[in-house]
Computed example of a mutant assay.
Amino acid sequence: MFKIMIVEDDRTIADLIAEALNKWEFQASTVTDFNRVFDQFQATRPDLVLLDINLPVRDGYYWVQKIRDASQVPVIFISSRNTNMDMVMAMNLGADDFVEKPFAMEVLIAKINALLRRTYNYQDAGSASLTVNGLTLDFKTGMAYVNDQEINLSKNEYKLLQLLMRAHGSVISRSRLLKDLWTDERFVDDNTLTVNINRLRKKIEAAGLPDYIQTKVGQGYMVK
């Protein structure tokens, strides 16, 4: 059962979301002490976080950065702040998606299901990690390991590596990677993917696995 943490100071909205999630057989928890959001995150270890921007004490931008310092768990912002700048800032700070208030509960549930599917793959829901050809990816921490050597990954590097590892033996096109990594491609150019691929390759090579990610000219990338 996936655990969803709801960081929303409007108690009515938080309770409605929790009720809907429980009906879908998710395990929902809500934050009540907004001084201790990160403490609850660490204690709960959720599989996904729903995070408002306007919160008491510190805003959602602060908390997503705290979460990203410790985890690559998927984060969806839910907010009435709907300018392009708000959305761009949310994504740049580490959010995976943005849902504008007011929203239909069915739309929110669909986005949650889609993001969980992309992040964990339902068939791997009981697994904590994925290992392919000597490299292990930890789903909870967002860290990669080659033997005992730790590889620190950015959010996009983590998502990129997971996509390639899950599809090992098959080529993934650049267009699909762009679509799967960035919910809104309007804010991403093609060079962004190249930069992320190159950084990821260097990190894996430094850990002792050269040529882990292979380029197939005119097709895309793959992990054998």
Score class of each variant (00 low, 15 high):
residue 46 P to W: 07
residue 83 T to D: 09
residue 94 G to M: 04
residue 164 L to R: 11
residue 141 T to G: 14
residue 31 V to H: 06
residue 109 I to M: 09
residue 16 L to Q: 10
residue 185 E to K: 08
residue 155 K to A: 09
residue 175 S to F: 14
residue 149 Q to S: 03
residue 138 D to E: 13
residue 89 M to D: 15
residue 87 M to C: 07
residue 170 S to A: 11
residue 30 T to E: 08
residue 58 R to K: 13
residue 131 T to S: 06
residue 167 A to Q: 15
residue 203 K to V: 04
residue 145 Y to P: 15
residue 214 Q to W: 03
residue 65 Q to L: 09
residue 33 D to H: 10
residue 149 Q to G: 01
residue 51 L to N: 04
residue 127 S to P: 08
residue 55 L to C: 10
residue 104 A to L: 12
residue 105 M to K: 11
residue 177 L to R: 14
residue 106 E to W: 15
residue 222 M to Y: 02
residue 107 V to W: 06
residue 163 L to T: 12
residue 146 V to Q: 00
residue 182 W to D: 00
residue 34 F to G: 07
residue 64 V to T: 15
residue 40 Q to G: 08
residue 64 V to D: 11
residue 160 L to H: 04
residue 177 L to I: 07
residue 79 S to H: 10
residue 108 L to E: 11
residue 213 I to S: 00
residue 213 I to K: 01
residue 184 D to N: 08
residue 123 Q to M: 10
residue 14 A to F: 03
residue 102 P to N: 02
residue 78 I to T: 05
residue 87 M to H: 13
residue 51 L to I: 10
residue 70 A to Y: 11
residue 58 R to Y: 09
residue 218 G to Y: 12
residue 155 K to F: 11
residue 5 M to H: 09
residue 86 D to F: 15
residue 136 T to C: 14
residue 74 P to G: 12
residue 37 V to C: 01
residue 19 E to F: 07
residue 131 T to E: 05
residue 18 A to E: 01
residue 179 K to A: 13
residue 138 D to V: 02
residue 103 F to H: 01
residue 104 A to I: 07
residue 171 V to G: 00
residue 202 K to S: 12
